[in-house]
Simulated assay, not measured.
Amino acid sequence: MNYTLHQLQVFLKITETKSITKAAVELHLTQPAVSIQLRNLQNQFEIPLTEIIGRQLYVTDFGKEIAKASERILEEVNAISYKTMAYKGILSGKIKISVVSTGKYVMPYFLSEFANKNKGIEIEMDVTNKTRVIKALKNNEVDFALVSILPSDLNVESEVLMQNKLFLVGNKNILLDRNIKIDELLSESPLIYREVGSATRISMEKFIYDKGINARMKLQLTSNEAVKQAVIAGLGLSIMPLIGLKNELENGDIQILPIKELPIITNWRLIWLKEKKLSPIALAYLQFLTENKERINNENFSWINLY
């Protein structure tokens, strides 16, 4: 066997994406380069690693076993690198974080300084919906998760990073009487929802239920950006996190509707399993957050206090 670490890295990415094209994009390689690496690895085995049915790539059972072995090999290689840097007195390791989709406006600001100061660390951040974030945490696939609603079925520790405000918003063409009640408004205007499982949707539905409001659902969309564009286009109203609306509010494309019952207020929290034994790099990151989160908030999110 003469396979290389690069071949294993490429093959592992192919198994994750189920696509040579997507693997090439994520690895910043050309599609032919990825195909060559897959072919060179395949040539060392008599049993197929992948197969094409129609136009879809499938990983064979044998290929899945090779992928598992590849992951273990690459983890050991990374561990050697981390240990080498540790002996040099350099903080090193990998932090894996799963972030709910709106959290992409939050988490990078609480990571950048720590990453820049510690060149020996790697950060892997997956941005997805709340259901998948909690699943990744539950399965111990990540060190931390960023959420705005704590999971009810997991025993977790948490670190509050900042406040999360949700307002009812519409586009710039809506003219409202400032005394209008939200139940009157939402009984007449269609409401745009996030998908089931989204923390924003959970907060919105709880608010509507608690207020006894009869709201008409116009659209259900799978990302905050899609909801934002639908609101700007005039397709309806939505209750959205303030954190993702800074540019649209400043440009006047979106306006916060003057409803006295709002905002809904939750907190952005970094959470981790209570029984998890955190790595030295993860513990160092928590210490960094404790010491610096207030300053990071003041430097990057003071605009939130204007609303």
Rank of each mutant, 00 (worst) to 15 (best):
K68C: 01
E124G: 03
S187H: 06
T266W: 02
E188S: 09
P280V: 05
K246G: 07
G212L: 05
A215Q: 06
Y58P: 01
L289K: 04
N78P: 04
R132V: 06
L27R: 06
V227I: 15
E291N: 10
I97Y: 00
I265K: 15
K117M: 10
S112K: 14
S81E: 12
I180H: 03
S152M: 10
I256P: 03
A233K: 14
K228W: 03
G103C: 05
Y285S: 00
R72K: 15
V100M: 05
S112H: 11
P32E: 07
F144R: 02
L186K: 02
S279F: 00
S70G: 13
R39S: 15
A282R: 01
K165Q: 11
E195N: 12
I264E: 02
M204Q: 03
D210M: 07
S35V: 10
K246M: 07
S98L: 03
V34T: 11
I180F: 10
N251Q: 14
E261L: 08
P190R: 02
I14K: 01
I304Q: 04
I281T: 10
T15N: 10
H28I: 03
E71K: 14
N155G: 04
Y285E: 00
H6G: 05
P48A: 14
M204A: 13
Y87I: 08
I254H: 06
I243Y: 09
T102S: 15
E71R: 11
A284V: 00
I123W: 02
Y58W: 13
I256T: 09
L137K: 04
T131N: 09
T200R: 00
A33F: 03
D126Q: 10
E46D: 15
G197R: 07
L166E: 03
L146T: 05
P258F: 08
L8I: 09
I304E: 01
V106Q: 01
F301S: 03
N247K: 14
N139L: 15
L49H: 12
I174R: 07
N140G: 08
L237S: 07
I264N: 06
R269W: 01
F11D: 01
N155A: 13
I52P: 06
P32Y: 05
W272C: 05
Q220Y: 02
W272G: 00
P190C: 06
S223P: 06
A136P: 00
N173E: 13
G212Q: 04
M162F: 07
N300S: 07
E51L: 13
L150Q: 08
F301K: 07
G120F: 04
T50H: 13
Q163Y: 05
L175A: 11
Y209Q: 11
L166F: 11
H28D: 13
T266K: 13
P48I: 08
P241W: 12
M240V: 11
